[in-house]
Amino acid sequence: MKSVLGKLFISLFMVGSLSALAASDIFIFQTAKIKIDNKEGSIFIGTPVKVLKKVDDKNVLVEFSGMAFGDKLYTGKTKSLLMATKKEGSFADEGQVVKVQAVIEKGYLSEVPAEIWEEHEEFFYEMCTQCHGAYKPQSHTMLEWDAILQTMSGFAQLYEDETEYLSRFLKANASNGFYPEQK
């Protein structure tokens, strides 16, 4: 295992956009621990990844792209969605788009976004349809959801952790979120 992880690397290169995200067909089922370059990190619920290869019976090597801000990897410059963190060091220079490879337990992967967000979705409709009809997450961009939640989290009387929980669901499923092809 150690020898395999030792060969892992973070490849750094500039890409014009993160549209490659849409091409991934497997997603993180729930926030989980990962190993990046043999060091500990976390990958967050919903993040799309590409499986590169099997590491052992339990683990696989995956790859994902994001924009680096210190030890955090986001979907873009507005830092709307956190994709991954690492305990030591930074992912790349500030604002640089990088591809990251990591080892993760394969049980944390799912091919069905709806399955991943089942509980979040229920919470969303529970909290956000008490006064008005619901807008589907895909009806807004990530940034729009951020802005709308600034106002509406107060009206829905959400606690901070609940806002965070809801916000992640809405942004991951936003029109420019992890699954833009979703209708």
């Binding site: 529970e126 009809g133 619901a134 807008y135 009387q157």
Partner: peptide, 22 residues
């Protein structure tokens, strides 16, 4: 000024069906 304390919400409309045109 806000109390910062939760009062009461309302009943949920739940998730829409196939049609959610607004």
């Amino acid at each position: 000024a806000a109390s910062g304390k939760r009062t009461v919400g309302g009943i949920s409309q739940g998730k829409g069906g196939e049609v959610s045109l607004a």
